[in-house]
């Protein structure tokens, strides 16, 4: 399922970028870019695991 990035919550720490096993998350120009083609729905990045600001959600 596609994930949503909530800019207002994000602090751009990049922890989600490195935790994604499929390299589906990138940070570019102060934004988090989600590559849905690469995402395998493993949910490692989701609020309950990877993001200290709960800025990524389903």
């Amino acid at each position: 399922m596609p994930k949503r990035w909530m800019e207002e919550k994000c602090v751009l720490c990049t922890l989600c970028v490195a935790i994604c096993p499929y390299e589906a998350i990138k940070q570019k120009n102060g934004k988090i870019i989600l590559d849905y083609a690469k995402c395998a729905d493993c949910e490692e990045c989701l609020p309950s695991v990877g993001c200290p600001r709960r800025a990524l959600t389903k």
């Binding site: 602090v11 751009l12 720490c13 990049t14 922890l15 970028v17 490195a18 935790i19 102060g30």
Partner: peptide, 21 residues
Amino acid sequence: SGKVELEGKKVRTACTSSLEV
């Protein structure tokens, strides 16, 4: 740079701080 070499393999790096902010 996003990657460092550890134990013979390239390993991804991430920062708990925010350079942007």
